[in-house]
Computed example of a mutant assay.
Amino acid sequence: MMTREPDDRQSWPEPSPATAARKRRNRLDPAARRRIGQNLRALYAEVLSQPLPERFETLLADLAASLEPEEPSR
């Protein structure tokens, strides 16, 4: 990223693609955002109601077991 000194005559670099995307995203009106949200919730409702695959359940159980504090040895 360029820094600008007070006497620097160079032009600023173009905004990053992320900055440009954020500006475009802010142009959506609330009604459009609401419709998009409703459509996404409807699309993913079925996926969210499905059980986790056994592999994920095993991984989560292993993670939970690794995070539990160990019993102090005597």
Rank of each mutant, 00 (worst) to 15 (best):
residue 30 P to N: 06
residue 56 F to W: 07
residue 69 P to Q: 00
residue 60 L to Q: 03
residue 18 A to K: 08
residue 27 R to C: 09
residue 40 L to Q: 10
residue 13 P to G: 06
residue 15 P to S: 11
residue 47 V to I: 04
residue 16 S to H: 12
residue 49 S to C: 05
residue 15 P to G: 06
residue 52 L to H: 04
residue 14 E to C: 04
residue 19 T to Y: 14
residue 11 S to F: 07
residue 65 A to E: 00
residue 47 V to D: 05
residue 25 R to S: 14
residue 61 A to E: 03
residue 18 A to H: 06
residue 54 E to H: 04
residue 60 L to Y: 07
residue 46 E to V: 10
residue 26 N to M: 12
residue 37 G to D: 10
residue 36 I to Q: 14
residue 73 S to V: 00
residue 72 P to E: 05
residue 40 L to G: 04
residue 49 S to D: 11
residue 2 M to K: 15
residue 56 F to M: 07
residue 37 G to S: 14
residue 56 F to V: 08
residue 4 R to V: 13
residue 68 E to N: 00
residue 30 P to G: 08
residue 70 E to S: 01
residue 70 E to T: 01
residue 71 E to Q: 02
residue 70 E to A: 04
residue 71 E to S: 01
residue 14 E to L: 15
residue 8 D to F: 11
residue 4 R to G: 01
residue 39 N to I: 07
residue 29 D to K: 12
residue 32 A to I: 06
residue 26 N to E: 14
residue 29 D to H: 12
residue 56 F to Y: 03
residue 5 E to N: 07
residue 20 A to N: 08
residue 49 S to R: 15
residue 50 Q to R: 10
residue 36 I to W: 12
residue 59 L to P: 01
residue 46 E to L: 06
residue 74 R to P: 05
residue 62 D to C: 01
residue 65 A to N: 01
residue 40 L to Y: 06
residue 74 R to M: 02
residue 35 R to M: 14
residue 61 A to Q: 03
residue 26 N to R: 13
residue 18 A to F: 07
residue 4 R to L: 14
residue 59 L to Q: 11
residue 8 D to P: 06
residue 45 A to R: 15
residue 59 L to R: 03
residue 3 T to M: 08
residue 5 E to V: 04
residue 74 R to D: 01
residue 35 R to G: 04
residue 65 A to Q: 00
residue 30 P to F: 02
residue 25 R to M: 09
